[in-house]
Amino acid sequence: MNLGNLDLILVVLAFLGLQVWWIGMTIRNGQNEKPLRSSEDSLKEQKQQLENLYRKE
């Protein structure tokens, strides 16, 4: 076997190992992710709080 073949095999194995690691990290991060609240809900809540604040005065 040529020396170049051994180097190529090592590079391919390193690449595949990094791909498996990256995909695993991506899947784990997706499972722990909290759903984002829409900006409309946040704006509605802020509007309601401000309206309540001005009503009290």
Rank of each mutant, 00 (worst) to 15 (best):
Gly30Trp: 03
Gly24Glu: 02
Gly17Glu: 02
Leu18Ala: 05
Ile9Gly: 06
Val12Trp: 12
Leu18Gln: 08
Asp7Met: 12
Pro35Lys: 05
Lys34Tyr: 14
Leu43Gly: 05
Val12Pro: 09
Arg28Glu: 03
Lys44Asp: 02
Thr26Gly: 07
Glu33Thr: 06
Pro35Glu: 07
Gly24Trp: 04
Val20Met: 06
Met25Ala: 06
Leu13Asn: 07
Leu10Arg: 12
Ala14Gln: 09
Leu36Arg: 14
Leu6Ala: 11
Met25Asp: 05
Leu10Thr: 11
Ile27Cys: 00
Thr26Val: 01
Leu10Pro: 01
Gly30Arg: 07
Asn5His: 00
Arg37Ser: 11
Leu36Lys: 14
Arg37Tyr: 04
Arg37Glu: 07
Gly30Met: 03
Thr26Met: 01
Trp21Glu: 02
Trp22Met: 10
Val12Leu: 13
Leu43Asn: 02
Gln31Asn: 07
Arg28Thr: 08
Ser39Tyr: 06
Trp21Gln: 02
Arg37Ile: 08
Glu40Pro: 02
Gly17Ser: 11
Arg28Ser: 04
Gly30Asp: 03
Lys44Met: 06
Trp21Ile: 09
Leu13Gly: 06
Pro35Phe: 01
Leu16Gly: 11
Leu10Ser: 12
Ser42Glu: 14
Asp7Lys: 15
Lys34Met: 14
Leu13Glu: 00
Leu16His: 04
Ile27Lys: 05
Gln31Phe: 08
Lys44Asn: 03
Phe15Asn: 10
Gly24Gln: 02
Glu33Lys: 15
Gly30Leu: 04
Arg28Lys: 15
Ile23Val: 10
Asp7Gln: 14
Leu13Ser: 05
Leu13Gln: 08
Ile27Asp: 01
Ala14Leu: 12
Asp7Trp: 08
Asn29Ile: 05
Ile23Leu: 03
Ile9Lys: 01
Trp21Asn: 07
Leu43Arg: 10
